[in-house]
Amino acid sequence: MTVALYAEFTATPGNLERVRTLIDEFAGVVRAEPGNIRFDAHSVEAHPASIFVYELYRDPAAFEAHLAAPAGAVFNRALTDLVEGGGSTLTMLAPVSISL
């Protein structure tokens, strides 16, 4: 079963470009992880400093490997002084059965 989640955070005034650079660098690392399926970042159209990152992993083990990877800690430390509240809010997602 895949693991899906999204992370949300808002860049503080004057830090949006630095946050975007960090996301760009981190995306390359995460997308190279063997169990990563998607890592897509978006800004909220009406509030460009608000960032929404959708992540999808092959299975719980792949997600656990992602959490254990040192790059995540480095990324989160770098965000601390650049975003409101000092970090991101994670929301875990559950699949909804739909017929096609």
Rank of each mutant, 00 (worst) to 15 (best):
M1A: 13
T2C: 14
L5S: 06
Y6C: 11
Y6F: 14
A7Q: 05
T10M: 05
A11S: 03
P13N: 02
G14Y: 10
G14N: 10
L16W: 01
T21Y: 07
T21N: 12
I23K: 00
A27Y: 09
V29T: 14
V29P: 01
V29I: 14
V29S: 14
V29G: 08
A32Y: 05
E33N: 07
E33M: 05
E33F: 11
P34K: 07
P34H: 13
P34G: 02
I37Y: 05
I37C: 06
I37E: 05
I37P: 04
F39L: 02
D40W: 04
V44D: 09
E45L: 10
A49V: 05
F52T: 12
V53M: 02
V53A: 05
A61V: 14
A62P: 12
A65I: 06
A71Q: 13
G72D: 07
A73Q: 15
A73H: 12
A73R: 15
F75W: 09
F75S: 00
N76I: 01
N76R: 12
R77G: 11
A78P: 13
L79E: 00
V83I: 15
G86D: 11
G87P: 06
S88A: 14
M92F: 15
P95G: 14
S97W: 09
S99Q: 08
L100C: 14
